[in-house]
Design a protein around this nucleic acid. Sequence first.
DNA 1: TAGTGGTCTAGACCACTTC
DNA 2: AAGTGGTCTAGACCACTAG
Lengths: 259, 259
Amino acid sequence: MLKRGRPQRDPSARSAADAGEDASPVGFRPLYRQVRDALIKRIVEGAWQPGELLPSEHELAATMNVSQGTMRKALGELERDNFVIRRQGKGTFVARHDEARILFQFFRVAPDEGDSEFPDSRIVSTATRLANDEDAVTLKMRPTSRVAVIERLRSIGNRPCIIERIILPCSLFPRIEKRRLPNNLYQLYRSDFGVTIVRAKEKLKAVLATSHDGQLLGMKAGAPLLSIDRVGLTAEGRPVERRVSMCRTDIFHYFAELK
Amino acid sequence: MLKRGRPQRDPSARSAADAGEDASPVGFRPLYRQVRDALIKRIVEGAWQPGELLPSEHELAATMNVSQGTMRKALGELERDNFVIRRQGKGTFVARHDEARILFQFFRVAPDEGDSEFPDSRIVSTATRLANDEDAVTLKMRPTSRVAVIERLRSIGNRPCIIERIILPCSLFPRIEKRRLPNNLYQLYRSDFGVTIVRAKEKLKAVLATSHDGQLLGMKAGAPLLSIDRVGLTAEGRPVERRVSMCRTDIFHYFAELK
DNA sequence: TAGTGGTCTAGACCACTTC
DNA sequence: AAGTGGTCTAGACCACTAG
């Protein structure tokens, strides 16, 4: 509950950690950001279940002692970051992170012909090892830390498509390599490790297939593959996952929208 | 000037063409969209020059007979679409389409090491021809229409980086192939042809270099290249440019942000 | 100090969904 | 008809910029 009763500003909140996407050098934290963060905290803690209907704008505004307009702006940011889904006439729902929606948010590979489906996954191997220099830099870890590495093959419509090597700090994801891993890892991160990835950055290159990768993908060594090096980030901008993918693009492609 | 005096809605505006990014099946056009479109029209017509300071929110709202809040929302969309730049304490400026900003909006290739610079361009060839099937589909043209084709080599820091083949409907860009072409084509489209590209869609694949492309890029035939097939769209969602790029990714990479 | 955009409020009405 | 999010207004104050 925000310590506010009136349109005055809460000075104690100004010094709050501000590592959000718009972190400004001098701390000024608008009320709607405080409201947003409070709501994120409650959602991640599980105060409402995925798919559950939230109280109305009016109600939420009343219980947090802010105006409807301010609550509206906070909910707008939550929708933008895919924490909630809003439907006129119906209400505001906690987003399910296992829906087709995520396909377009984090999975940017589609078949050249036919509809875009969500890919299957087959685990090839899991292990832990010391972080290498690249891991340490992208995940902002100490070089001596350990990481879990998950290798899996993803297929769309029974056609092998992508080899993923997923690198996770053991400190954030203890013993994840021993688990039975679902197709949608981001949902697992959130439900079992309290880590919510809301955005990611990717670097793409064209490379030639190694014999190992070629074999798994059903292509010859030396065939061109698309290499995708992704870092997954939390709402606070903290890097928590590195994912290196090799994608065959003879019958698939990567798509992007620039705006 | 919008025909409104009071909070009532303007029925004549409802039937207005709505091909915007959020086109809904049944026409309901919020006031701030009408305001936005009116402002876009004036900007494209050149009522204010690039870089020029616009009147304040209050003034604009008064002259268009809407509240400041509505004007604010319209200006917010203009900022999101990069028509204007807003600075607290300074004002709202018409965006220059030749600034570093556009580098991050439409140019997603950067050197692996060192800072991201804007690339030089060297025209390799220009010509016109009949649209092929792919052109006709992506640009929504009749198959018999003519297109202009511009081939150019782009370099970053004197290192060849990308070969671009730019395909434009002759109907929209008459005689463009005869012109002296600047580095920033999108600015030319806007100033000389009244066509403003606000967003684009790209399809990426890994391919092997042809001897022609390899030679221009200083690589061997058979080296892996990143192929980028882009469609440029106006604010109304109309496709107006196709651009097929071959990018060397041994020392450069393509970057994307997912959110 | 004046002017700008940014935030916040309070309250009204509209469009959409469900009963 | 009731309840939701979406739009719109009117007015206040705050933070930032510049003379």
